[in-house]
């Protein structure tokens, strides 16, 4: 083992020539001066909701939700809406498309019925998904968030997005790398 110079690995490769491991993507901090919004159990939100700070949902939502920070959907929450966030942790039910710029985490109680697009995805055992999954750094650029309207607000029969059915299970579970 040399005192000076580079150390060689078992394969005989020089450490300095080995590819460096990229650090995990930093979690973006919520926008300063934008306090968290909490939609608690027992409250229903209808319409287009936009926020600059963290959003925590424990109740019912109908419409669209957009935040440039963290979105948390609790296990008892029911979201019938298009969702767009920088980061998201989902433990409840979402009927609608989900577009996350950075990291999406699906807990074991999560149920997502819609198209998912994100840069990074973490799925716990037990999470249920029905729809396309697009994962990668360029996947979120092409995904649009469409509002999901209630039956009373629907003006046309095709106003709500329908999740695409995946016949190929392997395709649904594949993760496209950058």
């Amino acid at each position: 083992m040399p005192l000076f110079g580079s150390q060689q690995t078992e394969n005989g490769l020089d450490n300095q020539s080995m590819p460096t491991v990229q650090p995990p993507m930093a979690k973006p901090s919520p926008a300063k001066g934008s306090p968290a919004t909490i939609i608690a159990n027992g409250v229903r939100l209808e319409g287009e909701f936009k926020s600059q700070g963290d959003v925590q949902i424990e109740g019912e939502v109908l419409g669209t939700i957009e935040t440039s920070a963290m979105l948390s959907v609790g296990s008892e929450a029911k979201v019938t809406a298009g969702v767009k966030a920088a980061n998201a942790v989902i433990a409840g039910e979402i009927i609608g498309n989900v577009s996350v710029t950075n990291k999406l985490e699906l807990k074991s109680t999560a149920k997502v019925n819609g198209e998912i697009s994100c840069a990074t995805i973490v799925v716990e055992a037990g999470a249920k998904m029905q729809g396309n999954i697009k994962c990668g750094s360029d996947s979120t650029q092409k995904t649009s968030v469409e509002p999901v309207k209630s039956p009373a607000m629907n003006t046309s029969p095709q106003s709500s997005p329908k999740p695409e059915q995946n016949t190929n299970k392997a395709e649904a579970a594949s993760v496209k790398g950058s």
């Binding site: 027992g42 409250v43 229903r44 939100l45 209808e46 319409g47 909701f49 109740g59 419409g63």
Partner: peptide, 11 residues
């Protein structure tokens, strides 16, 4: 005029 919050069982 963009969204509405309502208490489902009052409060």
């Amino acid at each position: 005029n963009s969204y509405t919050l309502s208490l489902i069982g009052g409060g």
